[in-house]
Design a protein around this nucleic acid. Structure first.
Lengths: 208, 208
DNA sequence: ACCTGAACACCGTTCAAGT
DNA sequence: ACCTGAACACCGTTCAAGT
């Protein structure tokens, strides 16, 4: 979408229908094929066929653009997580948590550059990008809700739910970034099973 | 050490005793006060009082320098881990693993920029920096050795030792990077207890 | 051997100006 | 409103040259 470059031959207008979205699309497209750190504002503007200065009409700076890219990433991760959860019985807490975890790790491995932007250090100033909080909170709440339900159903040990949720999050995020950094090498087709094996150890630890 | 800059006033020689080490020292110094991504070769050369081009006599490129910085980081982390382990009875597997984990997370939180270079994505090309492997392997082996001993002593569950070690690693690395990215906010003085709480859940999962 | 001057091809960001 | 030309202050890296 929003491809109207044509290498300067027949460009009809300088006004994009939606330059903001075009830049975000270009970023996602670039992240699918290049590394996260080699993506530049100027390169994105070039892809869209616009002077790089135009980006500043829509984003305060590069990090603001990346924050939106991260937000979109978390949103599609959330969708995947929710879809996975629907495949289990309401009271199968362990199965649901295992599926969430597996979906998380697989998402990271399928979108490595995007995931690096999402978990990257650029976006760590607290409050700098408030648009990022709602989706992060929503994702966290999905897991914490599951943990609470599991405790009520006496399937999980009645520990502090926040800490238990953070423990699960640390496990999947940790495994994801070890895999992306190739510190742990797992063939693609074995990753789901590997993630299950790792996560099951944590699930065992928090089980009732 | 190796401070002989003097803003160009009385520099006696262009020949450093050891420019290589001076650049590494400057990098560590810079990482103590600045963010990981804002550190540049040119800035390091400036700090040392040398043309930036001189760095290429000692490092093939910027990433090669960062790889050595990462290596030094892992080496001091390893020293800390070994020191912590010595504080426990030989057969107190859980206590030893908990101490290792705590030392890891505290190291990351005390040296955030350094830890980001260590775990950063720049160094993920497998085989690009072979000097990094030995210390990483050594660190991994310390934990895996502890896991094996724990299984033999029937304190840990007889699961696949590599996967168990990776699970522990994922937990501490995941928690560390969530804390650094401020996705999880824990006051400094409560971090050790928080790390224990998270790691204990995993330790419970792998216990016999 | 070790270091530098000058240059190349990039960055992110800002100003004043164009339609 | 939306976009650009020109410029600023940076990058990493390379070449040919200096001691």
């Amino acid at each position: 979408m929003s491809r109207r470059v044509d290498k300067g031959s027949t460009r009809t207008t300088y006004h994009h229908g939606n330059l903001r979205q075009a830049l975000l699309d270009a970023a996602l497209e670039a992240l699918a094929t290049t590394s996260a750190e080699s993506i530049s504002l100027r390169e994105l503007a070039r892809r869209v066929g616009v002077d790089h200065r135009a980006a500043y009409r829509h984003f305060a700076d590069k990090d603001s653009l990346l924050a939106v890219v991260a937000e979109e990433g978390y949103r599609s991760l959330l969708v995947r997580v929710q879809r996975e959860m629907a495949r289990h019985d309401e009271d199968d807490t362990i199965g649901r948590l295992r599926s969430i975890a597996r979906a998380y790790v697989l998402f990271a491995s399928q979108h490595p550059s995007h995931y690096r932007v999402m978990s990257g250090p650029r976006l760590n100033e607290l409050g700098r990008f408030p648009g990022l909080e709602p989706v992060l909170t929503e994702l966290f709440d999905v897991v914490e809700g599951e943990v609470k339900a599991g405790i009520t159903a006496r399937r999980l040990s009645p520990m502090d739910t926040r800490q238990t949720t953070v423990a699960l999050w640390a496990t999947v995020h940790g495994l994801s970034s070890l895999v992306l950094a190739r510190r742990v090498r797992v063939p693609k087709e074995k990753l789901a099973a590997y993630a299950d094996a790792v996560v099951d150890r944590m699930l065992l630890g928090i089980s009732a």
